[in-house]
Design a protein around this nucleic acid. Structure first.
Length: 574
RNA sequence: CGAGGUGUGGCGCAGUCUGGUAGCGCGCACGGUUAGGGACCGUGAGGUCGCAAGUUCAAGUCUUGUCACCUCGACCA
């Protein structure tokens, strides 16, 4: 491919609206063009990267006995009604009506389609287990797309669905998928990807992992223990604390005029946040019923955990009515008269002397002892884990908090879809049974952007050779010189004959201009042919990551470069 | 959905406060001089100033409405 014919303009400036490195560099480099919010067209280099990445994924999916299939993007609403998700998913799913008046949806994931495909055709236990996967466009009408290809509304995803006759078999397969994912990210050249325990969200199921590429711009927060390797999404990370019980004190009502926040109360009473019980009020989405969470004053409520505990959608309370019996700013368990749901976080367990709200304006209690003054309560874990917190696995106070981009996930779904959609098979004892499922996703475009995010310098991406759009760029610094041109062109054709993928730049531009563009292409190997190199009978060769800069004799340059490419590939593949 | 911001040639921006008929840089085309980290000179093409109403002799500029996009938050397989 010649740069002169390659569509996609390299830009000197890009709007400062772009905040994320991968977005800036990929926009600058002519990798993509925005069409609408979260909707991009991809130029050839990006498509080549995607193709290579897909091939790696394909090989690994085939390696765990996957069958590549293709589900439709457009599906009838009735299919989604059969699983119940037509109503449970909100406006994130695009819906429309076909000419016949039938409600239709655009696929945002394909569990229903997978069950539809497998139903009836996998009717005997002898056919299990099996896994089907596809690369397909998903459309999710995100409320807010952002970060270039990191979070878009339309994207290509590899999604896989496995079917099993027992939990044990699912778990066995889940481990294989886990290992395949680990290999995929390694082969793709993504260095900082880790698997974390995660929340299952709308997908259902119990056990799930997210594969996170560690990056400061990541949208997910992770709790990681460097001591024992415990890793979890903050959404599900257990919060474990050791409370100082303090000395029991008599329950005493104190005036705290105008002191509503924990900070104000602590300053006023000269107390530590760790000895206060904070109340956080939520409402159930469906009924607006109040939910009051009592939690240690220095901690935050983890809404995902609370949601999972209540098994209901909730939101922070917008308005607290006087009739509710709740006095905002002075809410406490003792003497609380309300029909709201009350939840005690286990961070309060064992503290003998608490400061708590008095349930009337400008009043708090000190010396509050839940066991003594309130009675026996069921403590639950709805607190956010914190940096320096206790690791749920090894018990050391070594939890660290990192940010990550979710580039893949795996779920043990169970029978959520097969059961609701009535899929069965006939077991060896001649009885009908419901198969159980796992599902496994990777966002292709997001992974590309994430790799760019972790592998770039100030001038452009540094693509790993396994996914680089081309392996070698040949820069012809003086196309008007017949000799330079013939050397460069022979090098290009020799390389191509050896199966090396070459991007050839023979534009009549100054070297600096050509190098700047080459940096934006980010190809692993660069070969420069100029008047100088031709005089000396060499070709100048360097790697994009700047680890190698050397010269090869012109006669053997193609051979040496293809060897270099092979070495780099081998290194990445282990 | 809440808060803030921006819409002016392909890209990045100025001009808007104070109304007078659109400009700069990059890119693009042609000619020339150049040549190892985004060269320079000359000539040229390209814009109903997001859209719609309104005020005015006159609107990129003022008013109202509307749409799109961006950032933060909410939300999110």
């Amino acid at each position: 491919m010649k740069v002169r014919n390659l569509l996609g303009q390299r830009l000197k400036d890009v709007s400062d609206e772009s905040q994320i490195e991968s977005q800036i560099l990929m926009t600058k480099g002519g990798y993509m063009k925005l069409m609408a919010s979260g909707i991009y067209s991809l130029f050839m280099p990006t498509q080549r990267i995607a193709r290579k990445l897909q091939q790696i994924i394909r090989e690994e999916m085939d390696g765990i006995d996957g069958q590549e299939v293709l589900f439709p993007v457009v599906m009838p609403a009735s299919l989604w009604q059969s699983s119940g998700r037509y109503t449970s998913i909100g406006s994130e799913m695009a819906r429309f009506t076909d000419r016949g008046g039938n409600p239709m949806v655009l696929g945002m994931t394909h569990e229903e389609a997978a069950v539809h495909m497998a139903s009836n055709v996998a009717s005997s236990y002898t056919q299990y287990p099996f896994m089907i996967y596809q690369f397909q466009t998903k459309f999710r009408d995100e409320p807010r797309a952002r970060g270039g290809l990191i979070r878009v509304r339309e994207f290509t995803m590899k999604d896989a669905y496995s079917f099993h006759t027992s939990q044990e078999d699912l778990e066995k397969y889940y481990d294989r998928a886990y290992d395949a994912y680990t290999r995929i990210f390694k082969r793709a050249g993504a260095k900082n990807v880790i698997a974390v325990k995660s929340d299952s969200g709308m997908m259902g199921g119990k056990v799930s992992h997210e594969f996170m590429l560690l990056a400061d711009i990541g949208e997910d927060t992770l709790a990681i223990c460097p001591e024992c390797g415990y890793r979890a999404n903050m959404e599900v990370a257990d919060c474990i604390l050791k409370n100082k019980p303090g000395k029991p004190a008599p329950l005493e009502k104190v005036a705290t005029p105008g002191k509503k926040s924990i900070e104000e109360v602590c300053a006023f009473l000269g107390r530590e946040k760790e000895t206060t019980a904070k109340a956080v009020v939520y409402q159930e989405n469906a009924t607006d019923r109040y939910v009051i969470v009592f939690i240690r004053g220095d901690l935050e409520v983890n809404e995902t955990k609370l949601r999972n505990l209540l098994k209901k959608e909730i939101h922070p309370a917008v308005e607290i009515t006087p009739e509710s019996g709740i006095v905002p700013g002075f809410i406490g368990a003792y003497g609380l008269k309300t029909d709201a749901t009350v939840v005690f976080d286990r961070s309060l367990d064992g503290i003998e002397d608490l400061v708590a709200g008095g349930n009337e304006p400008d009043t708090h209690y000190t010396g509050f002892n839940i066991a003594r003054d309130y009675g026996k309560v069921e403590y639950v874990d709805v607190a956010k884990a914190t940096a320096g917190g206790i690791c749920p696995n090894c018990g050391k106070p070594t939890l660290t908090v990192r940010r990550g981009i979710e580039v893949g996930n795996i779920f043990q779904l169970g029978d959520k879809y097969t059961k609701s959609m009535g899929m069965t098979y006939l077991d060896s004892d001649n009885t009908e049974k419901t198969p159980i499922m796992g599902c496994y996703g990777i966002g292709v475009g997001r992974l590309i952007a994430s790799i760019c995010e972790e592998s770039h310098d100030a001038y452009g991406p540094v693509w790993p050779i396994s996914i680089a759009p081309w392996q070698v760029e040949v820069c012809n610094l003086r196309v008007t010189d017949e000799k330079v041109r013939s050397v460069a062109e022979k090098l290009v054709s020799d390389l191509e004959n050896k199966g090396v993928e070459v991007l050839y730049d023979d534009r009549e531009v100054r070297p600096g201009f050509m190098f700047a563009d080459a940096d934006l292409f980010g190809l692993p190997v660069r070969a420069v042919v100029s008047q100088k190199t031709c005089e000396r009978g060499v070709v100048e060769v360097s790697t994009r990551d700047k680890t190698l800069k050397t010269e090869f004799d012109t006669a053997e340059a193609a051979e040496r470069i293809s060897g270099l490419v092979a070495d780099m590939l081998a290194k990445l593949n282990g």
